[in-house]
Measured scan of single mutants.
Amino acid sequence: IQIFEKGDFSGQMYETTEDCPSIMEQFHMREIHSCKVLEGVWIFYELPNYRGRQYLLDKKEYRKPIDWGAASPAVQSFRRI
């Protein structure tokens, strides 16, 4: 998965294949504004440590949070399923 600090795949980008319990600790990001799921299925969580509201992401590109069903870019953790 590739995660971006700004919408439309702009700003700082990080790519990982590992679960992330805290985007702040692992990537020094506060929010995720866009992402590209390159393979597999992932779950975004609103809070750290896989808690809070969940969003299921299939293999595709998400230009903004509304594309994965979120009203805001408040994603604090994610993991692959």
Results as ranks from 00 to 15, higher is better:
40 G>L: 01
4 F>K: 03
33 H>F: 14
8 D>A: 12
26 Q>D: 14
12 Q>L: 09
35 C>K: 00
38 L>S: 09
22 S>W: 14
61 E>T: 02
22 S>F: 07
70 A>H: 15
64 K>H: 02
64 K>G: 12
40 G>E: 11
26 Q>C: 04
53 R>H: 07
7 G>Y: 08
40 G>K: 02
68 W>D: 05
17 T>M: 06
29 M>Y: 11
12 Q>R: 11
11 G>A: 12
58 D>R: 12
45 Y>P: 00
68 W>A: 03
68 W>R: 03
1 I>S: 00
13 M>I: 13
65 P>V: 15
24 M>H: 05
17 T>L: 11
6 K>D: 11
26 Q>F: 07
24 M>P: 05
34 S>R: 01
5 E>V: 13
46 E>M: 03
60 K>H: 00
56 L>W: 13
17 T>D: 06
72 S>G: 12
15 E>T: 06
46 E>W: 00
12 Q>F: 06
29 M>E: 14
19 D>F: 04
21 P>Y: 05
14 Y>V: 09
79 R>G: 02
4 F>H: 08
46 E>Y: 01
20 C>G: 02
6 K>I: 09
42 W>A: 03
55 Y>G: 01
34 S>I: 00
22 S>M: 05
8 D>R: 14
69 G>C: 03
47 L>Y: 11
29 M>P: 13
21 P>E: 08
36 K>M: 11
71 A>G: 10
50 Y>I: 00
18 E>I: 14
30 R>P: 10
74 A>V: 14
5 E>G: 08
57 L>F: 02
9 F>N: 13
6 K>E: 10
34 S>P: 00
28 H>L: 12
11 G>R: 04
51 R>S: 12
51 R>D: 10
65 P>N: 02
1 I>A: 03
65 P>M: 01
29 M>H: 15
32 I>Y: 02
70 A>S: 10
15 E>N: 11
14 Y>M: 03
80 R>C: 13
64 K>I: 02
75 V>L: 07
64 K>C: 04
64 K>Q: 06
11 G>M: 13
39 E>F: 08
17 T>Q: 09
5 E>N: 06
71 A>D: 02
32 I>R: 00
56 L>K: 03
19 D>Q: 15
57 L>D: 02
12 Q>M: 10
34 S>K: 00
9 F>K: 05
32 I>T: 08
20 C>A: 09
1 I>W: 00
39 E>K: 10
22 S>A: 11
5 E>P: 09
32 I>A: 10
60 K>L: 07
62 Y>N: 10
50 Y>S: 01
35 C>E: 00
74 A>C: 15
23 I>E: 00
10 S>V: 09
2 Q>I: 15
21 P>D: 06
46 E>P: 03
65 P>I: 04
44 F>D: 00
29 M>S: 13
5 E>L: 11
66 I>V: 02
19 D>M: 05
18 E>P: 06
28 H>Q: 12
4 F>Q: 00
19 D>S: 12
16 T>L: 13
3 I>Y: 02
47 L>R: 10
16 T>N: 11
36 K>L: 07
50 Y>A: 01
48 P>W: 01
77 S>K: 00
69 G>S: 14
56 L>R: 15
35 C>F: 15
28 H>S: 12
27 F>I: 14
43 I>H: 03
64 K>Y: 08
61 E>N: 12
30 R>I: 05
9 F>A: 06
28 H>D: 12
72 S>P: 13
36 K>N: 07
64 K>D: 04
61 E>M: 08
6 K>F: 14
21 P>L: 09
41 V>L: 11
74 A>L: 15
15 E>K: 15
44 F>H: 01
49 N>P: 01
31 E>L: 13
13 M>W: 06
13 M>H: 10
3 I>C: 08
45 Y>Q: 00
13 M>S: 08
29 M>D: 12
1 I>L: 04
74 A>E: 04
46 E>H: 06
39 E>W: 06
12 Q>P: 11
40 G>H: 02
39 E>I: 08
20 C>P: 00
43 I>C: 04
63 R>F: 08
23 I>L: 04
50 Y>C: 06
52 G>A: 01
38 L>V: 08
7 G>M: 10
49 N>K: 07
16 T>R: 10
43 I>E: 15
3 I>M: 08
45 Y>V: 00
68 W>L: 07
37 V>T: 10
53 R>W: 02
42 W>C: 03
53 R>G: 07
68 W>P: 02
62 Y>T: 03
55 Y>K: 02
58 D>C: 13
31 E>C: 04
69 G>P: 02
28 H>E: 10
35 C>R: 00
33 H>E: 13
15 E>G: 07
31 E>G: 11
23 I>A: 10
37 V>R: 12
66 I>K: 02
42 W>G: 00
20 C>K: 08
40 G>F: 02
12 Q>T: 13
7 G>P: 10
70 A>D: 08
67 D>P: 04
2 Q>A: 05
33 H>R: 07
35 C>G: 13
12 Q>V: 10
23 I>W: 11
27 F>W: 12
39 E>H: 05
53 R>V: 08
79 R>T: 11
64 K>L: 05
10 S>N: 14
4 F>L: 00
39 E>R: 13
58 D>T: 10
52 G>H: 00
70 A>I: 15
51 R>H: 11
66 I>L: 09
12 Q>H: 07
69 G>R: 11
68 W>V: 06
6 K>H: 08
52 G>C: 01
57 L>R: 02
78 F>I: 03
28 H>R: 07
16 T>A: 11
80 R>M: 02
52 G>Q: 00
36 K>H: 09
13 M>Q: 11
24 M>N: 15
46 E>T: 04
61 E>W: 14
64 K>W: 03
37 V>P: 12
63 R>D: 06
55 Y>M: 03
70 A>G: 14
60 K>Y: 15
37 V>A: 14
18 E>C: 10
16 T>W: 14
43 I>V: 09
50 Y>H: 05
70 A>Y: 15
30 R>E: 13
12 Q>I: 08
51 R>N: 02
36 K>R: 11
67 D>I: 15
2 Q>L: 09
54 Q>V: 07
19 D>W: 08
65 P>E: 09
37 V>K: 12
21 P>V: 10
45 Y>S: 06
72 S>Y: 15
27 F>E: 11
3 I>W: 07
2 Q>K: 11
12 Q>Y: 12
28 H>Y: 12
59 K>R: 04
18 E>L: 08
62 Y>E: 03
20 C>H: 02
54 Q>D: 07
35 C>N: 01
77 S>F: 00
27 F>C: 05
15 E>I: 03
18 E>D: 04
23 I>D: 01
62 Y>V: 03
55 Y>D: 01
80 R>Q: 01
79 R>L: 02
80 R>A: 02
16 T>H: 09
34 S>F: 00
78 F>Y: 08
56 L>A: 15
60 K>R: 04
41 V>S: 08
26 Q>P: 08
30 R>T: 10
67 D>F: 07
18 E>G: 12
34 S>E: 01
15 E>R: 06
72 S>N: 03
8 D>E: 06
20 C>Q: 09
70 A>R: 14
64 K>R: 04
16 T>S: 08
2 Q>N: 15
47 L>F: 13
28 H>N: 10
27 F>N: 04
36 K>A: 11
13 M>A: 09
10 S>T: 03
32 I>M: 10
80 R>D: 02
53 R>E: 12
36 K>Y: 13
57 L>N: 01
23 I>Y: 11
75 V>D: 01
29 M>I: 08
62 Y>S: 04
29 M>C: 15
69 G>L: 11
64 K>A: 12
48 P>H: 03
26 Q>V: 10
51 R>M: 13
61 E>L: 04
71 A>M: 11
54 Q>H: 12
52 G>M: 00
37 V>W: 01
63 R>I: 15
46 E>C: 09
19 D>E: 08
32 I>W: 03
26 Q>L: 12
8 D>I: 11
64 K>S: 02
52 G>Y: 00
6 K>R: 07
40 G>C: 03
45 Y>A: 02
2 Q>P: 00
